[in-house]
Simulated scan of single mutants.
Amino acid sequence: MQGLIKTRIELPEMLVLEILSKLHVKSLTRLRCVCKTWSSSFETPHFNTKHHQNNLKNNNLNLLLKRCHGYTRDNIHYFSQLSIEKDQNFRVKYNIHLPFFENFVHAPLVHGPCNGILCLTDLSCFGHNVALWNPSTREFKILPQSTVQRPHRLLDFSSFNFLGFGYDSQTDDFKCIRFVTNYFEENLDEWLMADWTSQVELYSLKRDSWKEILFPGVDAFASILFNNYVNGFIYCQAVAVDHHILSFDMVNEKFSTSPLPEFGGSLEQYYLELLHFNGLLGAIFYPREGTDKSFDLWVMNGSWTKQFSVESVLGVERPLGFWKNGELFLESSDYELVLFDPSVQELRNLGIHAYKETMHITAYVESLVPLNGRSEHEEYIIRRPAEG
């Protein structure tokens, strides 16, 4: 009998990259050392896009929970990475601290995710610290301070209202937008009626700089619970225009307004949160008072339609975010993380506590998008296993 002849099969490079694009970021990081071709391929926009699309298609979500255990400057806000395996009941895998934001009460405020990237900001309106973070590649980038010219008057301070973070598909660029209110010294004794002017600033990751853009003449504020970036637009609630939404086009860098759904109530009685829901703009309404809550979800697809209503969930305070099959993460009246399944009307306690109204949950897909920043290290991010 003749000996077996071993044959080496060479797979086409495109097929190899197609297979690799289905792997987790952690595996791809290890494979960078296999060969230079693979390492350089993992950095191309084409591979990054393919990898991200595969994660979206397979609904490969990861969970980060921001929380705190008190309401003083000494009680630090931090992230908990939650397990997503079915048998693990969303247990805490890692706790992640960000020393860069530890001097600010409530910081960081989370915007996004957008293509797997989070934008973190100082919640204090007098601060202007902004950073981008890719929790998959563990890259962290502190944004430069704005060089936008302020009015030529005796300026006392400027406050910052951060509106959102999104992606410009035409230029393959990530952008941040914020309102800046400039207060002047002459009316400090009555600051509520102080003389002020407004500006709008836009940051570009490609340019790594801020610029001033045309002010729309309408103040707005963004959701603090949900991602308000949807398909190239940032959406937020207009302050001066009742029952309207202010939107910002990431490509054309222009504002426009549109009406809210006629949900049958008033914003004095109901909270409004704008969110990304299955690729469309959603609006969720829930009562301001009481712990026996109902939740109405409306979706914009040419016109507003009510997607569903959740009636009378007892013992909860507010919604935090949706999970894979329409389940809703909620903060209970005991300030615990719970998961509500509307299909069976079941409320499940996940055993995770936090101080009231400090929880923020982020569901994101993995991304290889580079930030041209720094790798995580203890100056900016401290990641520890939950057991420690």
Results as ranks from 00 to 15, higher is better:
59 N>E: 15
61 L>R: 04
62 N>M: 06
62 N>I: 10
63 L>F: 14
64 L>H: 10
65 L>T: 02
65 L>Q: 05
66 K>P: 10
68 C>S: 15
70 G>I: 03
71 Y>V: 06
71 Y>S: 14
71 Y>M: 15
72 T>G: 08
73 R>L: 15
74 D>R: 15
74 D>V: 00
74 D>P: 02
76 I>A: 11
76 I>N: 04
76 I>D: 11
77 H>F: 10
77 H>C: 13
77 H>S: 10
77 H>Y: 12
78 Y>S: 11
78 Y>N: 15
79 F>S: 03
80 S>P: 07
81 Q>I: 01
81 Q>V: 08
81 Q>F: 07
82 L>R: 03
82 L>S: 09
84 I>Q: 12
85 E>Q: 09
87 D>L: 12
87 D>V: 14
89 N>I: 09
89 N>Q: 11
90 F>L: 12
93 K>E: 15
93 K>D: 14
96 I>L: 12
96 I>A: 12
97 H>S: 05
99 P>Y: 06
100 F>E: 13
100 F>K: 14
100 F>A: 12
101 F>N: 06
102 E>F: 00
102 E>D: 12
104 F>R: 00
104 F>W: 02
105 V>S: 05
105 V>K: 14
107 A>V: 07
108 P>M: 04
109 L>S: 13
109 L>N: 04
109 L>K: 10
109 L>V: 14
111 H>W: 05
111 H>Y: 04
111 H>G: 04
112 G>S: 05
112 G>I: 06
113 P>I: 00
115 N>R: 11
116 G>P: 02
118 L>M: 09
119 C>I: 01
120 L>N: 02
120 L>R: 01
123 L>T: 13
124 S>T: 08
124 S>M: 00
124 S>L: 02
125 C>G: 03
126 F>C: 12
126 F>L: 03
127 G>V: 00
127 G>I: 00
128 H>K: 11
128 H>Y: 12
128 H>S: 15
129 N>M: 10
130 V>G: 09
130 V>Q: 05
131 A>N: 05
132 L>P: 10
133 W>H: 11
133 W>I: 06
134 N>F: 06
135 P>R: 08
135 P>G: 15
136 S>M: 06
137 T>G: 10
139 E>C: 05
139 E>M: 09
140 F>W: 05
142 I>G: 11
143 L>H: 01
143 L>C: 07
143 L>A: 02
143 L>K: 03
144 P>W: 03
144 P>C: 07
145 Q>R: 10
146 S>G: 08
147 T>K: 06
149 Q>V: 14
153 R>I: 08
154 L>G: 07
155 L>T: 09
156 D>R: 10
156 D>P: 00
157 F>I: 12
157 F>E: 01
158 S>N: 05
162 F>H: 10
162 F>W: 02
163 L>K: 01
163 L>N: 05
163 L>Y: 01
165 F>D: 04
165 F>W: 06
165 F>E: 04
166 G>C: 02
167 Y>C: 07
168 D>S: 14
169 S>G: 14
170 Q>C: 04
171 T>Y: 14
171 T>F: 11
174 F>W: 04
175 K>P: 14
176 C>T: 11
